[in-house]
Design a protein around this nucleic acid. Structure first.
Lengths: 138, 138
DNA sequence: GGATAAAGTTATAACTATTATAAAGTTGTA
DNA sequence: TACAACTTTATAATAGTTATAACTTTATCC
């Protein structure tokens, strides 16, 4: 959870995206909670506030945010698409017992892999799975 | 493409999976071609040989191979599930221009990330996206 | 070898996530 | 205010996968 006060409306304007209520709300949810929600989870989060909200709007607005480079799709689990606000480069660890997701730093040694010499790397997804410290104690 | 002569039938038996024709064929396709096929691509590869093959059988047998630890699901692209025979630990690079997929070694520095101290890591998926050397020349 | 149980296969249907389409509503600007 | 562009909604279509049940094959025990 972030603590800083971020002006999402302005952030959207800076990225040439119209700052509709939905967009402000969706972006702030993804950025504040840092819980890498799916489109469906976002929808469920929003439907109480906007009873007439359609799922298409969630998809449309997610797409607009991805296009604008404000969020990106990440591979946390193979079968589902999740979203993350771009900060620094990081990997995701998911606990197979409690389901919690932890972000972790990618040490810079990942940046220069000999075997990818000559390849222009534009995007990185690093997803680990295992057991978190809390669940190891149980 | 692999060149060794592997006895997939025996490999299945060793892993306590009945060596049906489908399973032998599916496992050998995934292991020989190393092209990380989707369930659908496997189905299309097999349908000529087995005209009565149903897609359910592909899913069932893939599942059996995953259960047995002979193959695993990998995240090459977010939206699709692909399969890979487990060899050594490696990442996948996908070229956004030609679509080719290259396996690359993960240098061992990925094994010991300070930020994951205390976490038991059981599975790793590393997926990069970008432009391959050939496509950079175009 | 034949009976029986277990496992595998098929066809069909159901389900979930996503994308497409078109009509209605909203916003921004001249 | 009027028009154009954008956004939203509802509905339908699609793709990938899972569920179910009947049928077939394979393995095992006598």
């Amino acid at each position: 959870m972030r603590t800083e006060n971020i002006d999402y409306k302005n952030l959207l304007i800076e990225h040439n995206v119209r700052p509709s209520n939905y967009r402000i709300h969706i972006l702030s949810l993804i950025d504040q909670k840092q819980n890498h929600p799916t489109a469906d989870e976002l929808y469920k989060d929003l439907i109480d506030t906007y009873p007439t909200l359609s799922k298409m709007s969630v998809y449309n607005n997610i797409e607009a945010l991805v296009e604008a480079g404000l969020i990106r799709r990440v591979a946390i689990e193979n079968t589902e698409v999740r979203y993350d606000s771009i900060l620094d480069e990081h990997g995701h660890f998911k606990c197979i017992k409690c389901g919690c997701v932890k972000n972790f730093d990618l040490s810079s040694n990942l940046l220069s892999l000999d075997s990818l010499m000559g390849y222009e790397v534009l995007e990185k997804d690093v997803f680990f799975k295992g057991v978190c410290p809390d669940c190891q104690k149980l």
